[in-house]
């Protein structure tokens, strides 16, 4: 195994009494698309900021592209691209002006700057809009410009902090195509996200909750480790069925999707008959029952729920 491009040991950060990140141990390999998942306030952005060298850790250590995040932050900054949650563009500058500004900031030599800006604009389909002011672009286009800015200097490592927040599904899909293209060219991508469908597109994931790492691995590994079997059932009495099922310990989570109830259980292959038995006993009619694939979202919700229970028990 080669040297990881991002590596942390017991990385921690507190703000006063609040522990935002606690003893985080991460390793990201070259060329991976690595997703960091967690609810709001879990410490995702704090982690990214520490890795970028703009926030000092209060404990532990870490290396990014081979440099120490605390002592060699400036060396790291030359070798990474960073896209913030807010697509930090100059709204009163045109697409082209924004890109050539960042090209200058990241030290793309003057002679190559124009060519590089053109290349990036072509790759992201921005050429038609190069004269447009960034402030007048829609969310999806802003996101493209932000990604183009972040990759203007061909960084080996790209940090994306909730890159698809507030962007429509079509743009999101196109954005992911870009990400996979970059990854195929050898760029490592470390991103945070709320969207579970996006999480499944990552090579590996880390789950962070209240500053601590809950699980790390490929989406399949993470889902398998939770050992959930999911059943989808259709019933005219969805609310009653959900209330009834939640009282049983083999049921982890019941979530309504229109007429369908999605039930995550720990019952393995026995899930289907067990659910039927419970509902029959209560006289709740069931129209249709079928097995469904457990998703990252199921795993995520299950993990957070278990953590809550544990903390309540401890308190």
């Amino acid at each position: 195994m080669t040297e990881p491009i991002v590596h942390t040991e017991n990385l921690s950060r507190s703000f006063g009494a609040l522990v935002a990140v606690r003893d985080l141990n991460l390793s990201v390999q070259k060329g991976e698309i690595f997703g960091v998942l967690g609810p709001n306030g879990a410490g995702k952005s704090t982690t990214i900021r520490m890795l970028c060298g703009i926030l000092d850790p209060s404990g532990g250590r870490g290396t990014v592209v081979g440099f120490d995040i605390q002592r060699e932050a400036e060396r790291i900054k030359e070798r990474i691209g960073y896209m913030t949650q807010r697509f930090s563009l100059y709204e009163d500058l045109s697409v082209q002006e924004n890109l050539s500004f960042y090209a200058g900031i990241y030290g793309v030599p003057f002679g190559r700057r124009r060519k590089r800006v053109q290349e990036v604009m072509e790759a992201t389909g921005l050429t038609q809009r190069k004269k447009q002011l960034a402030g007048t672009l829609s969310g999806g286009w802003k996101q493209r410009v932000a990604l183009a800015s972040a990759t203007i200097h061909n960084p080996p490592l790209l940090f994306l902090d909730e890159p698809t927040a507030g962007v429509d599904p079509v743009s999101r899909r196109e954005f992911w195509e870009q990400i996979h293209r970059l990854s195929a060219e050898g760029t490592t991508v470390l991103m945070t996200t709320h969207y579970m469908d996006e999480a499944e597109r990552c090579h590996r994931l880390a789950f962070i909750f209240r500053g601590s790492l809950l699980d790390i691995g490929s989406p399949d590994e993470i889902v398998e480790r939770r050992n959930l079997s999911v059943v989808e059932l259709t019933t005219p009495q969805a609310v009653a069925a959900a209330d009834c099922l939640r009282e049983h310990s083999f049921v982890d989570e019941v979530a309504p999707y229109g007429h369908v109830l999605r039930v995550a259980t720990y019952a393995g292959d026995a899930a289907e008959p067990q659910i039927r038995a419970v509902l029959d006993e209560q006289g709740i009619p069931v129209d249709r029952v079928r097995r469904a694939r457990a998703t990252v979202e199921d795993a995520f919700v299950s993990m957070v729920r278990a953590e809550h229970k544990q903390q309540e028990a401890a308190a």
């Binding site: 060298g53 703009i54 400036e74 990474i80």
Partner: peptide
């Protein structure tokens, strides 16, 4: 506007 964060994370 959040662009300062973008500058801080750059090698400038």
């Amino acid at each position: 506007r959040g662009t300062l964060e973008q500058l801080i994370v750059s090698p400038v």
